[in-house]
Amino acid sequence: MRLYAAVAAGGFRRYATYRTATAAGVFTNTVFGFIGAYTYIALWEQRPDLGGYDLSQALTYVWLGQALLMTCAMMGGGFEDELMERIRTGDVAIDLYRPVDLQLWWMASDLGRAGFHLLGRGIVPMALGALAFDLALPTRPTVWLAFLFSVFLGVVVSFAVRYLVALSAFWLLDGAGVGQIAFLAGLFFSGMLLPLTLFPGALGEIARALPWSSLLQVPADVFLERHTGWGLLGAFAFQAGWAAALLALGRLLQTVATRRVVVQGG
């Protein structure tokens, strides 16, 4: 356990060293936040209760999206390229024989990264958004705690998906395709484009049931207090369920892949 804490701390520090990049990223998040906010104002002026949100909730949703974009790695990125490269070069064989768990190792590192992105890329855009617009910020500390927990589960789901993407490199020579599809799905189904409650009919129902909704839609709804009481537990269960299922799948693939590496002689 202590080992994985150290790995997580390493993941945090690794991103913390790039200060200029972080400042530049915050600038970008803020720019996109403003653009999104104005389009939502135009939209909600026409339909004040669209998707079940009022205007200030809709604006909050925009800024939450910017704050969590990097944290939940909605557009992919973080560790996949590195792991894929290790798989391609065969270095992963060394990792598999080490007395640490491959999946937990990378997850700890990714959680560290997410922690930094939440602090470094999340807080400032959110604060600037709150200064410029009238946002619906929770007043009760418990809601904030529930939100953080939901974000944590979102990061785990995001990690589990990206881990599957990375493992595909065991079978596919060129992982660019799978990465591409995961990137597109993450962008589309996380709710980054528009809240999933605005997606029409069956598409909306499917989108809300897919794992990617754990990345933004669910944490945002927790933040906006649309999940309370048993509903909140339901939201957590939804996220945790996907996290468990995807992590288990990753574990299964990892086992098969390990056997493959062993058969091939490493």
């Binding site: 200029t20 990049a21 400042a23 530049a24 996109f32 653009i35 104005y38 135009a42």
Partner: peptide, 28 residues
């Protein structure tokens, strides 16, 4: 001047095109 600041460029390029996709009346 700022080698890690490629994202600032993105704000004006990708951000710019996103802005221009909507009517100017939408914005402040």
């Amino acid at each position: 001047w700022a080698q890690d600041a490629a994202e600032v460029q993105n704000s004006f390029t990708y951000g710019g095109t996103t802005l221009l996709q909507y009517p100017p009346t939408v914005f402040a």
